[in-house]
């Protein structure tokens, strides 16, 4: 194997603060707040109704990146049973609303995560599970795992622990549902507003970028 020159150091900039104003309760670009819709009298109530539907029917992308995937399986079984909250596992990104980054994320997996995340229809949410997604966790000095997930995809809620037990996961999902109902889970808007910043960060760690800039 030939020794190519080392890649340049990434210069990470903080994401631009002061995001542009959303519609009511977290409606952003993909929900198309047109002028006509902004003039609707019921738009706040309609947004609340839509968010209630979304919060009570979270479909989770069945994709485990790290060891935390083992904590997702008990959720579908008799002991914890997240289907009683209307959640279900969907094996295809086209039908999922939530993607769970379950633990350490290798750069190779990050590429797949980005593809899957961008293929999910909006609105969509990201749950960072375990310490590894927050700050690298016990794999912080591994040569091939990322340390901060929120540099590459927008994270709506973190569930800390190594690993968090399924009860903690259920509590995190409950908090995510509350955030969706309040219209605060806006990571997907943040991703679109700071698209260039996210893409710059992603391309710094993914050296063989052989996919389109946005995966439809």
């Amino acid at each position: 194997m030939d020794n190519k020159p080392k890649s340049t150091l990434p210069v990470l900039v903080e994401p631009p603060k002061g995001a542009q104003p959303h519609g009511p309760l977290g409606h952003g670009y993909f929900l198309g707040e047109t002028k006509r819709q902004q003039a609707l009298p019921m738009r706040e109530s309609l947004a609340k109704i839509k968010n209630w539907f979304r919060a009570n029917s979270l479909w989770v992308m069945a994709y485990g990146t790290g060891c935390g995937g083992i904590e997702l399986r008990p959720l579908t079984t008799a002991r914890f049973d997240f289907e009683r909250f209307g959640m279900a596992m969907r094996p295809t990104p086209r039908q999922s609303n939530v993607i769970i980054i379950s633990g350490y994320l290798a750069v190779k997996s990050l590429k797949r995560v980005i593809r899957a995340y961008e293929q999910m229809p909006s609105p969509k949410w990201v749950v960072g599970l375990g310490s590894c997604t927050i700050n690298g966790g016990m794999y912080w000095d591994s040569y091939n795992t990322i340390n901060r997930l929120d540099l590459y995809v927008p994270v709506d809620i973190y569930i800390a622990g190594c690993m968090p037990r399924p009860e903690a996961l259920l509590a995190g999902f409950g908090e995510l549902m509350k955030m969706i109902k309040r219209g605060e889970a806006n990571g997907w808007n943040h991703y679109l507003e700071n698209f260039d910043w996210y893409k710059e960060n992603q391309k710094k760690v993914i050296n063989d970028w052989n996919m389109p800039d946005y995966n439809w």
Partner: peptide, 13 residues
């Protein structure tokens, strides 16, 4: 609820 949520999603496929 699932049907309603699915209708309220935007698609770009």
């Amino acid at each position: 609820i699932d049907l309603g949520k699915v209708i309220f999603q935007r698609t770009a496929t």
